[in-house]
């Protein structure tokens, strides 16, 4: 399955699941990264990491390895 890191600039994906890390999963869900939500990369920090994503109407910053745990689908 694709992860957030596979998104091209401007492309939107839909969250499907989270890779096996329960702490991270709970943290992300608590911050509104729910399965079914749209997700888009809005920018990256100067050194390529962390990245910022647009989710549920706001912007969230996370590291690349964390973003890799968010599994998505593009094209419905």
């Amino acid at each position: 399955m694709k992860s957030v890191l596979d998104l091209k600039p401007g492309e939107t994906g839909v969250i499907q699941a989270f890779a096996n890390d329960n702490d991270l999963k709970n943290k992300l869900i608590g911050m509104g990264c729910l399965p079914g939500e749209n997700i888009r990369i809005s920018k990256a920090a100067p050194l390529g990491c962390p990245i910022a994503i647009d989710i549920a109407g706001y912007e969230l910053s996370l590291r690349k390895d964390e973003a890799a745990c968010i599994l998505i689908e593009t094209d419905r």
């Binding site: 702490d23 991270l24 943290k27 992300l28 911050m31 706001y58 912007e59 969230l60 910053s61 996370l62």
Partner: peptide, 11 residues
């Protein structure tokens, strides 16, 4: 243990 960097970027 793993470290996280999950944080809101407010307007």
């Amino acid at each position: 243990s793993r470290s996280y960097f999950i944080m809101e970027l407010p307007l």
